[in-house]
Write a protein that binds this DNA or RNA. Structure first.
Lengths: 217, 217
DNA sequence: ACCTGAACACCGTTCAAGT
DNA sequence: ACCTGAACACCGTTCAAGT
């Protein structure tokens, strides 16, 4: 029986080296998004970076939206789950600060929040948030208010900040200044020209938690 | 001199009837988005609805993103600017409630907030918000905290709600229930299964404003 | 089980040309 | 001043076929 020609053996070896997995696809998608942003994420370009044919991805994933969902959940995987301390405000603060930091490291992520978030990493963090609030004495409507309010606050803050920092955002801020006559209060108070976003975030979080105190039972 | 043939005169008349304007384009875009959602908005389909060639829109608008920016600003145009009452909480509550309602009437709008919002309608509402807060005694960092926090709270709430109500959102909620063992607190407390979203929103808003009181000077 | 190429039905946008 | 059609350089996704 005749042996296979060299080329074929080389091809096989080369191909066996990196068997594509869903994990690799997601990791590469995150890298692509970090480097070039949402608009540049294409199934074809993603496949190219993985040395795969453009249609190969569809064996591991059903659709491009799947890739985005998985990438977003991967970002949440970076959020460390804090050790519960017994102080609900400390627990919430720790979680939510890490949550925001992860989104800021991946500026494309905040804008993806308009899709249902039921990935395991998201749910684990949300579970922690609920658990911390339950321990603090929030129940029923008050619990829903606190949990959704806090989650909305973090993601909203992250989205506002990444938008403001984007190229378009900086142009927009300059454009606003030119319109002092129409929007004096905005311009005089530096809307979109904030410098210390971290402090704004932290102060708002404390204020919100202050306001939630009276909802505990 | 020979008169023009009939067909030509008919064509002209027919064409002169609806001269395309940016306003008409935006109105039609909003209608299309309301009916079919963001994914279905296409320059070609939009043009078709306006009885125009696919490339005609580009005389009135530079890019598809322009259309989206204009459509989003149009939504904010529906938010009525309340009469200032002297009670800062009443003013903020009125503004922010109308703001949320407008976004809920156009469920696609919340997900568009990741672009810089410097349209005249957005800015007028934001100016009102800042002015109300300045009247209430917020300045500097406290003002930025209150303004951004409240804005993030509204848009975040609207986004969470429209996402939860979407087709994918309902599927996601069912999927979550199946995972009681992994996320007991979430499932037991009806995360994503909220019924009275209006109450959750209102209670969170009051809590936040409670917490902001101490920042006034 | 995993990967490929060809092909389908679309996209946004440009531009020379028309009226 | 406003509109058009043809054309370019892409898309996401399907599917029969390969190994």
């Amino acid at each position: 029986m005749k042996d296979k020609p060299v080329w074929q053996r080389q091809r096989r070896a080369a191909r066996e080296a990196p068997p594509l997995t869903r994990e690799k696809i997601v990791a590469e998608a995150v890298a692509l998004l970090d480097e070039e942003g949402t608009a540049k994420l294409t199934m074809r370009r993603l496949a190219q970076r993985l040395d795969a044919g453009p249609t190969t991805l569809y064996w591991h994933v059903d659709t491009k939206d799947d890739v985005l969902d998985l990438a977003l959940d991967a970002v949440f995987g970076e959020v460390v789950l804090p050790e519960p301390t017994g102080d609900w405000r400390a627990d919430v603060r720790a979680l939510v600060t890490g949550w925001r930091a992860a989104m800021l490291r991946h500026p494309w992520s905040a804008a993806l929040v308009g899709r249902p978030m039921v990935g395991p990493n998201v749910l684990a963090r949300t579970e922690f948030l609920y658990a911390a609030l339950v321990r603090a004495g929030f129940t029923k409507a008050a619990l829903a208010t606190a949990a959704h309010g806090l989650a909305n606050y973090v993601t909203g803050s992250a989205l506002t900040l990444t938008t403001a920092r984007s190229e378009d955002g900086l142009v927009a801020a300059e454009y606003l200044v030119e319109q002092w006559e129409s929007y004096p209060t905005l311009v005089d108070n530096g809307h979109l020209r904030e410098e210390d976003w971290d402090a704004v975030f932290a102060q708002g979080l404390e204020s919100f938690m202050d306001g939630l105190e009276s909802l505990r039972s």
